[in-house]
């Protein structure tokens, strides 16, 4: 079966929903922070897939650029969340 944009969008939607589930389900900082990379990874995968399949050849770098930005934002969010978790945890 040939793989097309729908397959990537479905996988991206799953990652986004799994991240939203993790953020909403758990009360601890670390639990919520672990969901943020999944949320943004799903969005990034959709951006790259749409730029690969559904845009003109010259516009493909726009989606990839946003995916790179999202990946860097993920690391910043996780670092800040881990620091907040450290502050919140009683010694």
């Amino acid at each position: 079966m040939s793989v097309g944009i729908v397959h990537f969008l479905f996988l991206g939607g799953f990652l986004f929903a799994a991240g939203a589930f993790a953020v909403a389900r758990q009360r601890s900082y670390l639990g919520a922070v672990a969901g943020l990379p999944l949320l943004l990874a799903g969005a990034g995968l959709d951006l790259v897939a749409v730029s690969r399949f559904a845009t003109a050849r010259s516009d493909q770098l726009a989606g990839q650029g946003f995916a790179v930005l999202l990946a860097l934002m993920v690391f910043a969010f996780v670092a800040v969340g881990a620091a907040l978790n450290r502050l919140e945890t009683p010694r």
Binding site: G13, F14, F16, A17, A18, A20, F21, V23, A24, R25, Q26, R27
Partner: peptide
């Protein structure tokens, strides 16, 4: 939290 987790399923 439980409601939010259920809404995540709806989002999917």
């Amino acid at each position: 939290n439980q409601l939010g987790a259920s809404l995540a399923g709806v989002v999917f």
